[in-house]
Design a protein around this nucleic acid. Structure first.
Length: 428
RNA sequence: GGAGAGGUGGCUGAGUGGCCGAAAGCACUGGUCUUGAAAACCAGCGAGGGUUUAUCCCCUCCCAGGGUUCGAAUCCCUGCUUCUCCGCCA
């Protein structure tokens, strides 16, 4: 959520910045809502003030034993008026709030202009794609030919866009998670967390998935007699970032650095026909997430640092990748800047997203009311949030299957994973 | 699932209808004292919003949402949640 004050004081300029990402801010609608808000709020507060002073004088008169009937006559009807005014105000504030909640974040100056992913800017490449001296397969063929990956069974058990891993491939999947978590906790200073996979609507509002993107989520059927709606998490970002919702952090505790492995559940609404083959786009996948809660001035440096932490994993696994600065038309709703890390997939002859690292500045923090106490002012200030995948586990598995396939249809185990796999060097 | 007790500022915790945004203690900040520090003493110290150049002033907030009342932290209802005991369970 953007700062209301910013919209009031610098509306045209803000609209211009939002236009860079293709969002048309309805400035006339905002101005009229805001003007009405001001009017009704002042009226309501005047009525409240009136009620307070009159009620106090009744209390005092009563204490002195005076007759209060004339005073009671004075407040007659005030309650109705006040109630009506308060009601109008809360309705208006709800409208204004919804309006604000649907405005995306302002792109950072360093984000390149662009319409869609074709306009993203490559920053650097790491590693050299391997030359194969045999006919290569894509990850689906490698997995199915070794009988370690099965989509048909998953479709029977559940439906499309699910997968089933067996034997050494399931083990490698687990090994990847362990390796990523160990690296981030031991080498990069993150604190491992285990979090709920079901979250409430308030948490999803805090990180920006609600109210706008409900169709991307799996909602749990509401329990009988309860008014709590739960959702399956689309990313660990939601439960982990919400650790700091409604808190004021001490300055010396920042930055907070959390990592968590969780499954992620996405309905993939609007992606019919995309990546239908293979495990690139699933309803359920595992991810190791990195989250940093930092002071405002540190957030863009933190983004660079966090991105490099994710890159470390690919480097250790020996998987070639490139780093991309997403353009204004491709960054997510809540992000002010996003780097995508794209891994090389020989089966597709393409670099494909394997991690997305974003800086949100205070956009999430404002919704979360996540603050820290600045010792210089003594006042609470909004924190900045930064997060990224370190990495998407399923897609990492895809990259290994394709990059490490052998001429006899097996898969070599990357060196760093062998310790997690009982020393195995080849699977399949 | 059953029975009971709770949820108040950064923390502990008092407050059962008006004089309560809220005692007291801790923590924190500033000062006195001290060569310095500690102790002691003095003072300050919740958050959000409106208005304002700013001070002032005003409004809201004692888990959340409703209700009663001229007036609610306090009374009533619903939900959430924490703790204790019993049952069940991995």
């Amino acid at each position: 959520m953007l700062d209301q004050k910013l919209l009031r004081q610098d509306l045209e300029n803000t609209a211009k910045k939002l236009a860079r990402r293709g969002y048309i801010l309805d400035t006339a609608a905002f101005t009229s809502l805001e003007n009405e808000r001001k009017l009704i709020q002042e009226k309501t507060q005047a009525l409240q003030s009136d009620r307070n002073t009159k009620s106090k004088s009744i209390g005092k008169a009563k204490a002195k034993g005076e007759d209060i009937t004339p005073l009671l006559a004075e407040v007659d009807g005030l309650g109705e008026k006040l109630k009506a005014s308060e009601h109008a105000l809360s309705e208006l504030q709800e409208k204004l709030n919804l309006f604000l909640m649907e405005i995306p974040n302002i792109p950072h100056e360093s984000v390149p202009d662009g319409k869609n992913e074709d306009d993203n800017v490559e920053i650097r490449r790491w590693g050299t794609p391997r030359e194969f001296d045999f006919e290569i397969k894509d990850h689906v063929s490698v997995g199915e030919d070794t009988a370690l990956l099965n989509f048909e069974l998953a479709a029977k058990i559940t439906g499309s866009r699910f997968m089933l891993l067996t034997g050494d491939l399931a083990r490698m999947h687990r090994a990847l998670i362990q390796f990523m978590l160990d690296t981030h906790t031991e080498k990069h200073g993150y604190t491992e967390t285990y979090v709920p996979y079901l979250v409430n609507a308030e948490s999803l509002r805090g990180t920006g998935q609600l109210p706008k993107f409900e169709e991307d989520l799996f909602a749990i059927k509401e329990p009988e007699g309860s008014n709590q709606q739960f959702y399956l998490i689309p990313t660990a970002e939601v439960p982990v970032t919400n650790i700091v919702r409604d808190t004021i952090q001490a300055a010396e505790d920042l930055p907070l650095k959390f990592t968590a492995h969780t499954p992620c559940f996405r309905s993939e609404a609007g992606s019919y026909g995309r990546d239908t083959r293979g495990m690139i786009r699933q309803h359920q996948f595992e991810k190791v997430e990195l989250v940093q809660i930092v002071r405002g001035e540190d957030s863009h440096a933190a983004l660079d640092e966090l991105t490099s932490h994710a890159e470390t994993i690919l480097q250790a696994l020996g998987l070639p990748y490139r780093l991309v600065n997403l353009c204004t038309g491709d960054i997510g709703f809540s992000a002010t800047k996003t780097y995508d890390i794209e891994v090389w997939l020989p089966g597709q002859q393409k670099y494909r997203e394997i991690s997305s690292c974003s800086c949100f500045e205070d956009f999430q923090a404002r919704r979360l009311m996540a603050r820290w106490r600045n010792p210089e002012s003594g006042k609470p200030e909004l924190v900045h949030t930064v997060n990224g995948s370190g990495l998407a586990v399923g897609r990492t598995l895809v990259a290994i299957l394709e990059n490490y396939q052998t001429s006899d249809g097996k898969v070599e185990v990357p060196e760093v994973l062998r310790g997690y796999m009982g020393g195995k060097a080849i699977i399949g």
